[in-house]
Design a protein around this nucleic acid. Structure first.
Ligand SMILES: [Mn+2]
Ligand SMILES: [Mn+2]
Ligand SMILES: [Mn+2]
Ligand SMILES: [Mn+2]
Lengths: 219, 219
DNA sequence: ATAAATTTTTAGACGAGACTAAAAAATAAT
DNA sequence: ATTATTTTTTAGTCTCGTCTAAAAATTTAT
């Protein structure tokens, strides 16, 4: 069945909110991400339920059906492949691509994504370190951990981010915190949990716990 | 002012219908290309007129304002650049790209088109030989002529097509009539104006006048 | 010049997707 | 166990872009 742009965006949002929980997703949570009102969300959830893409019961929240999940994953796959294209081929920075990919992810053509994937060398991570779902709808687990969970004196490598808002990415760029850099934790300030770190062995800098939470690293 | 997908498509259609005439474009002509009804076209023309993109007077047809023309040309620019991308970078055939470009042409990002243009090496023709409008909205003239106007015994080179419907392009491909081939006119049959031609010096084949009209060549 | 045919516009309706205001249900506080 | 608060749903309205049916204007034919 055909999916409208609005439907695709709702499914993607529901998918995102489902990732960290087994409970149904609340109407208000969807409304916030969709930048719309709760009443509009209720309307849409009823439509999505009729199409068989979500399980929805009044006041009980919503969850994706296997079909709904499949659709969401295919949109996410397109989004992330386009992000790779924009960064790798067109020379964008990682903080500039999300909004454009939000548009490109809705282009409908199986062969296009197939060929794009090939053109890009079948990448398995996007420019923010997020796994790219496979063609048959399987997404690798996020295997990296937040920098905030690494112990003092340890080394690690920046593999991704847990948030791709431009404003956050620009901060990282300004601090030379790019994909692949080596991070050494010099000290963790116990009172506000901020970190003193070295980036590729350079002079130590400070980052807040909030920032560290959203930086994904491998030991 | 922002343009909706529907508005962009209407402006593009009006542009196309204006190319070969100085008269206003008729409601019915637009309706046919838009695959919609005349009543819907009338509605839209009134909206476009309010936005200052067309001059519209009841029963008098419609024509683009300079602003409207600018918008139309920017959509056509995007369409053709994406077509180049699909053929040159992703390996599509020229008969497969039009529908996908119809979607991609509506992606909104100045920097994206800028970077895409650069990535493609600033092409000035799309895979069908059509000129790509420049960033500041100038479109080169179509300098090629229909094969149907070439004299007997003359040689020419296939530079483009006047129609990019997949069904037509597939016929050309089947006859080895690809961009850049040398065509020699062996004979013109006077009774139905069909042509006997050689493609790159191979054994002669027949093409109808209808086909010849839509093949663009340079002598 | 009048009638017939065609084209175009208007009038009224509809679905998608959003909104506001108000009602209902679920949660939290006393 | 009642209130009070928050969340969610319903009811009614709006805009966009489309449709059909009918009216009006234009063009063509007689
Ligand atoms: Mn993104
Ligand atoms: Mn991403
Ligand atoms: Mn095309
Ligand atoms: Mn083309």
């Amino acid at each position: 069945m055909a999916t409208s742009l609005a439907e695709e965006n709702y499914l993607k949002i529901i998918y995102r909110l489902s990732e960290n929980t087994d409970l149904g997703v609340s109407t208000n949570a969807v409304a916030e991400l969709a930048q719309t009102k709760a009443a509009s969300v209720t309307d849409m959830l009823q439509k999505l339920a009729e199409k068989g893409w979500v399980i929805y019961q009044k006041y009980q929240g919503v969850r994706l059906t296997p079909t709904g999940q499949k659709i969401a994953l295919s949109i996410i796959r397109k989004h992330r492949l386009w992000e790779v294209f924009l960064v790798e081929k067109l020379g964008y920075n990682w903080d500039e691509v999300h909004e454009i990919a939000e548009q490109l992810e809705h282009i409908e053509s199986d062969s296009l994504i197939q060929k794009l994937d090939e053109f890009l060398g079948f990448p398995d991570r996007d420019p923010h370190g997020d796994p790219i779902p496979t063609r048959d709808g399987k997404m690798a687990d996020q295997i990296y951990q937040p920098l905030s969970e690494i112990k003092e004196k340890k080394d690690c490598v920046l593999m991704g981010v847990a948030k791709d808002a431009a404003i956050f990415l620009q901060v990282l760029t300004k601090l030379n915190l790019n994909l692949g850099v080596k991070i050494t934790i010099v000290e963790i300030n116990s009172f506000d949990r901020s970190l003193q770190i070295q980036v590729n062995g350079a002079a130590p800098i400070f980052v807040s716990h909030e920032v560290a939470k959203n930086i994904l690293v491998k030991a």
